[in-house]
Design a protein around this nucleic acid. Structure first.
Lengths: 415, 415
DNA sequence: CTCTATTTTTTCGAGCCTCGAAAAAATACT
DNA sequence: AGTATTTTTTCGAGGCTCGAAAAAATAGAG
């Protein structure tokens, strides 16, 4: 079972701890790191001296402005941007984007591309991804040697080992091991993640006060996705990325869902479902492939204006989301929720019915205390999550390697 | 955030590792422990020598029968039964039981008692629990000094710090901090756990092959409860024991549940719901307080005999459980399920509709591969889970103490 | 009955790691 | 210029684990 702690693990873990403290805090001094990690000054001194020598950290004359204090001024430590770089690839409906991010987390290059993912063949899809990565890696401004990891996020279900896309609404293809493909192609460790999980990761970095140990990120888009953080850790399924909130059952045998089943939350709250209900089509009507953001905005505008089928459609969406959240809260207790995606801009239309529904569920006891935040733009969030996830891997597996880090392809020490 | 690893934590953790290896394996030799923990022989030798000196482990001339091997015979290490003792208290509907368990996990004394929990006052309930514990502690055969922990399991919701019962179907009382009360009364560290969570813990110890990293224990009883283990850890809510599977919403606005809300899974699958449907009463009929096991057996017998309302009632129960499991599987992916409790004996009546329902959900893709096991007797399971949980605490916090173990009341080193 | 092969367990010195205390460094204030 | 203050480094002490070798304990061979 769980393996004993070897003596050399100790240094490894404490190295990782120092790196992560710097990544979180920005420009902490050695003293601050000692305080947050609970390690002694001597230890921090020794470790940070190593890390600086290896080119992972750099000293950066801390905030001159705050040097009104008496004694020896603190020296800020920061991540050396040149220590490594990672690629964040985001593949969503009809859209592919890639960004190159330096070790300090800054975007240094990017590229975006429109595709027709729904009609592309398997090979075309793979080729596009490989090609866009290749173009970035061939950029003369980039030191290819420094690229330590590629993280690819996709709308859909991925396996729990972060190797493959298992199923996705953006393509009829299934089981594409993107991570393995990219790894083979470029010799750079790659991971494949679910888009909503990356949203959650990003929210945690963006606003650690609000999104700390337990929170929910829900993507309101053509489909409904969820990223869940519990007890400070990203929640995933036992075999897949899990957290398929959109496919929890709202009404057994109910409306036709894009997944082919009936009564899923998504079949009431996804864009296509709202669109379908707003047009007063049958619940059995085949879900449309895509509804433009403009069209959804028009629907929302009409719903705000008159109490017609549009408003009712949003009400039904709120109800489905509310009962779904209620069932979720029965399992995990209530937690802060972030509503992300274009339809989050219409959350005012959704919220009343949502809260009414939640109030009828086990989570309803604390209905008032459940707070919602909205963020209409999911793409930057997904990319940010990818980047942070990739960088965390670099922090832990490459810059603090040891017996534990079994990633065969990971190169040791870059600097 | 996460704190650095101090040098002295190392020994502490490896001590805990050795103890837990012995608890799991029964009578492992030092060599076997070295193999399973990955630590060196020297380290294991040093640690086990300490543990034996402290009276925590004992040498026990390993299985003489297997001494057909050549070299120096292995010396089995086992837990010293006298190193400590724990109390496992189980409080369920109209029933209170306590068991004294020695450090090796053997029951050395027990007592059971019928109560009328639904009508008892808050103080009566507390007094009964305190009294039954006191009687056990006053047993002249028991060394009170050795009692290191009390674990109390209750049917109902407990807080995530294992201090209090927040709500329970067995009593109208709420928010009773049993753990604090017992701790104050006897000066022995106490914890308060949810019964179904303890079932899951016990299943893991009983059959680690089947119930290892991910599995579900569902209690089919008057109410519906769940214990969930994910990635090898007991799953709990953010604020409470969580995992209230029985109160996920099956049909929005549907049948009246014992919790006062509508459409919960329990309102279709709990004993009172099956009974209500079998009698063809309205879904709005007030849930009855209790249905005897005998009566449920009679219902099941009639359902097996003729295709009447009884069979339909079980069908509806299966449907509710199936859609509930389907929604759960959407979140966590399918996992082995153990059906526990009296109604698990009627699982043959439930299973067809359950599987049919699951097949209509996201979990349905692997519908065939989902396996169900039944165990009609929940009480021994709950007690066993309590005992193991309490013993694990002793293993870790008392016999492998350190800066991490902040349990103020825990005494250090017993032997 | 003795000797050898074999396996388990203990012993011992080496190598790390962290820690606390003290020293060194770097600045503000007087 | 000197003193107080704060940060950072240095250094010896104490612990822990590890590998190698020694010791212990048995089965089988002659």
């Amino acid at each position: 079972m769980s393996v004993g702690i070897r003596h050399d693990d100790l240094r490894r873990r404490n190295r990782a701890m120092v790196i992560s403290a710097v990544r979180r805090a920005g420009q902490p001094s050695r003293t601050e790191i000692a305080a947050t990690t609970g390690l002694s000054h001597s230890t921090i001194s020794a470790i940070s001296s190593d890390l600086i020598q290896e080119g992972i950290l750099t000293e950066s004359k801390a905030s001159e402005t705050v040097s009104l204090k008496r004694g020896r001024p603190q020296v800020g430590l920061s991540l050396n941007p040149e220590a490594a770089a990672v690629l964040a690839v985001v593949l969503s409906l009809n859209f592919l984007s890639v960004a190159v991010i330096d070790y300090a987390g800054q975007v240094v290059a990017e590229e975006q591309r429109r595709l027709d993912t729904l009609t592309m063949s398997r090979d075309e899809l793979i080729d596009e991804c490989v090609a866009i990565v290749r173009r970035r890696l061939e950029d003369p401004d980039l030191d290819v040697q420094s690229v330590a990891r590629i993280a690819l996020a996709i709308q859909g279900i991925t396996d729990s080992h972060a190797r493959a896309m298992l199923w996705s609404p953006i393509t009829p293809q299934t089981n594409i091991a993107f991570a393995d493909i990219l790894e083979r192609e470029f010799g750079i460790p790659a991971i494949m993640e679910n888009d909503c999980n990356m949203m959650a990761v990003a929210l945690r970095w963006r606003d650690p006060d609000r999104y700390r140990d337990d929170f929910i990120a829900i993507l309101l888009s053509h489909g409904i996705g969820m990223g869940l953080v519990l007890k400070g850790e990203l929640f995933t399924g036992t075999h897949s990325s899990g957290g398929e909130f959109g496919h929890m059952i709202h009404r057994p045998g109910g409306a036709l869902c894009r997944c082919g089943r009936r009564g899923c939350v998504e079949a009431y709250a996804g864009n296509y479902a709202i669109w379908r209900n707003a047009r007063q089509l049958s619940e059995n009507a085949e879900p449309v492939a895509d509804v433009s953001d403009a069209e959804m905005r028009a629907l929302a505008a009409r719903a705000r204006q008159t109490d017609g089928p549009e408003r009712e459609a949003y009400r039904k969406a709120g109800e489905a989301l509310g009962f779904g959240l209620g069932s979720l809260f029965a399992l995990i207790d209530p937690a802060p929720v972030a509503m992300v995606g274009a339809s989050a801009a219409a959350f005012d239309l959704i919220e009343p019915a949502l809260r009414e529904a939640i109030a009828q569920t086990a989570g309803g006891q604390h209905s008032g205390s459940i707070s919602f935040d909205t963020e209409p733009n999911e793409l930057p969030l997904i990319r940010e999550g990818c980047a942070m996830r990739a960088l965390s891997f670099v922090d832990q597996e490459i810059f603090a390697p040891g017996a534990q880090g079994k990633s065969g392809t990971a190169r040791k020490h870059v600097a």
